[in-house]
Design a protein around this nucleic acid. Structure first.
Lengths: 209, 209
DNA sequence: TAGATTGTTAATCGATTAACAATC
DNA sequence: TAGATTGTTAATCGATTAACAATC
């Protein structure tokens, strides 16, 4: 099924770099670049060639001595590693400004997902359509998740709701959470990816000095 | 001016943790908790006590042997470290869905900033008001930045515009960039904080397996 | 073949954790 | 004072970089 063994021991640091590799490699592919060496890629990405080779070799050897990496093949390998062609399913929970911005503008597909539903507790929102989905009543969320088994939920709801709702979602079998609230969520076996706007802006506040 | 020496050698890993510390400590303050030990904080944050003490000691000793840390004092120290009370200025460049979501809903103030203006190239947008700001013509952006000297710019514009516009902003003296586009930006001496939605979601795609 | 560049092992560097003397 | 807990040094662990034999 998989082209590579998913080794448990792949570090978070390596995983964190993979989407950026994918971004650069698909750009090169779009520009019809046929091959690239670790040295060449290192120079455009601002990394060391050594690190790039180490990173790719966590997932198996995609290169060829004396030649480098075939861009098209490498691009495909990265898609396989990140599982971007599996068409996993996502629901959006909370259709406020950020939720709507994601529904209307964000390309879920190119990050490996298909948006199949969205929910809100506000009566004025229920029934409205954005993009390809219609807002459903939050009261039906539990039933939907239990039956439809979406892979992940996008949490764009008020911070206070984040813990109770995500607990419920995990109970109903959700497999991952994309968390836009400032709540710190943690569940055994359910990965959480956080978009912490304020943490990021505070860092910038520090960094600009 | 500063209560602590900003040592060059503070690692990015430590800085990255500071906003999260601040989040937890201000929560404790809100709950009127008077003091907390590194051990206590470690247990609620899921870190080691040792790491917490090491991190805080990068900025000076805020604790007291045998007692722990005074929550109110620690909270204030974190605000000083992150410079959250300096009221730095920000502008939003690009008033699409994400830009508007930030303008209308995001609390810039609690992350150390004051939103002073926003810009868009779309004629239909210019003149409209959101929250406390009115959309200005992108043509006037250069002049505005050169004269008003905002500290940072929030980049919520199309990816293709990110490089040319941010180069122009840096030229005009912008001191930091909060980048919501998928472009990789890098300028000497101008920190960039990235919110890479798709990188984050791709990681989640990998992690849910 | 010769040159280039990988995959991989070894060396280095940095970050985290442990330990403990200092001291409130 | 005795107990608790810091600040800080030393030990460990993990990640990055360098080196080089393998090989295309």
């Amino acid at each position: 099924m998989y082209e590579f063994e998913r080794k448990k021991e792949i570090s978070q640091a390596v995983i964190n770099r993979m989407p950026r590799y994918y971004r650069y490699i698909s750009d090169l592919k779009r520009q019809n670049v046929a091959r690239i060496s670790s040295k060449g890629l290192a120079s455009i990405m601002g990394l060391t060639a050594s690190q790039i080779r180490q990173d790719f070799n966590c997932f198996g050897g995609f290169g060829q001595q004396g030649y480098g990496y075939n861009v098209e093949k490498l691009c495909e390998e990265l898609e396989n590693i990140l599982e971007l062609r599996r068409n996993k399913t996502a629901i959006v929970v909370g259709v406020g400004n950020i939720g709507r911005a994601l529904i209307k503008n964000f390309n879920f597909h190119s990050s490996g997902f298909r948006l199949i539903a969205c929910f809100d507790a506000n009566d004025d929102m229920i029934g409205k359509s954005f993009g390809s989905v219609t807002v459903q009543n939050a009261k039906d969320l539990r039933k939907f998740v239990a039956y439809e088994k979406p892979d992940i939920a996008v949490l764009t709801l008020p911070k206070e709701m984040a813990v109770p709702i995500s607990s419920m979602l995990v109970e109903c079998g959700i497999r991952g959470l994309w968390n836009f609230t400032n709540a710190d969520l943690q569940f055994d076996g359910v990965p959480v990816e956080n978009i912490h706007f304020s943490d990021s802006l505070m860092r910038l506040c520090y960094e600009v000095g």
